[in-house]
């Protein structure tokens, strides 16, 4: 009889262990390929690695060098300009379109997919389309000249000082529709009773939105910010396809800097240090958000 009891005991134990066993491959992959790799890259950022990884610790030299490089400063200040404009414009367009679409619009079912479809495209495709559209020789400027507006000039993509703004235009084109969808979902989730009460109290349309609706959209604002901010820091493909980082180095971002220093200039230690800075930037944005998300759900 003892063996039978053992057997039952074993089966309950097994039942307890199965969930953990099932979860373990993903956890193992994550620990190695995400967190292990992060630690490895952090370690490399303190070594004198050039073309291949080396394990000689040289202290914070790479970070000192990195912040002394004008190319890195260009990349960081470009990111600041790009991220600020990208997040602000996407949020403004997304919110405006969502509010307008929410006014019982005929043809909403037609318009929504038109606003959203760019998010299905690869940044390489978006870059190809906009590179051409913005090229003064054959794109918009050329077309305006053909239509008789001879003095029209739009050569930002060839202009060192303006090229970064073309990245903003293309990136906004790609993601603002998605932000619209997030705000629209938020608007549709608002209880109409609140609005009716406010209208009876004689609130004007403008103050209705400013005082009541927009504050209620706080969660949507937060999600939009987090998603856009992390996309901005990770931006790589679009720059490669649209400007290749040029003219000169005018549109380098940290992501393109890291790639070229690590893999084409053989400065792996410096490249690793730049990747660590990128990770820390994202962590600073994500940590408070994730923390509050996980706490709320308990």
């Amino acid at each position: 009889m003892a063996s039978r009891a053992d057997d039952a005991d074993f089966r309950t134990k097994l039942q307890e262990w199965i969930p953990k066993l099932v979860l373990s491959p993903s956890v193992a992959l994550m620990l190695v390929f995400v967190y292990g790799f992060i630690l490895y890259t952090i370690y490399l950022s303190f070594t004198g690695s050039k073309m291949l990884p080396k394990y000689d610790l040289i202290g914070i030299d790479n970070y000192v060098r990195l912040w002394g490089l004008s190319a890195w400063w260009t990349a960081v200040s470009n990111l600041a300009v790009f991220a600020t404009l990208y997040i602000t414009i996407c949020t403004a367009i997304g919110l405006t379109l969502a509010i307008l679409l929410d006014q019982k619009i005929r043809g909403e079912g037609m318009l929504r997919p038109i606003y959203l479809y760019p998010m299905a495209l690869s940044f390489i495709v978006t870059g190809t389309a906009w590179k051409w559209f913005l090229d003064p020789g054959i794109g918009l400027e050329h077309t305006m000249h053909l239509w008789g507006w001879e003095s029209f000039e739009f050569g930002w993509i060839k202009d060192r000082n303006m090229a970064i703004y073309t990245i903003v235009i293309a990136a906004v084109w790609q993601t603002s529709g998605f932000v619209m969808a997030m705000f629209l979902a938020g608007l549709r989730g608002i209880d109409n009773e609140i609005l009716k009460a406010a209208q009876i109290d004689g609130a004007s349309n403008w103050s209705l939105y400013r005082r009541i609706v927009i504050p209620l959209l706080r969660p949507a604002f937060l999600s939009a910010f987090v998603i856009l901010a992390h996309l901005a820091v990770k931006s790589y493909d679009l720059v490669i396809a649209l400007t290749g980082g040029g003219p000169g180095r005018a549109t380098e971002l940290p992501a393109t800097f890291m790639y070229s220093y690590t893999f084409t200039r053989n400065q792996m230690g410096t490249g690793a240090a730049s990747a660590v800075i990128m990770l820390m930037t994202i962590a600073a944005i994500m940590m408070p958000y994730l923390y509050s998300e996980l706490k709320e759900k308990k």
Binding site: Y35, T41, L279, A283, L294
Partner: peptide, 21 residues
């Protein structure tokens, strides 16, 4: 919850941090 938090954060890492290893 810790495992989930770690998984969640892994969605947002800049992939430059894992390219070399």
């Amino acid at each position: 919850n810790i495992i989930f938090g770690l998984l969640l954060f892994s969605c947002f890492i800049p992939f430059q941090i894992v390219l070399i290893p």
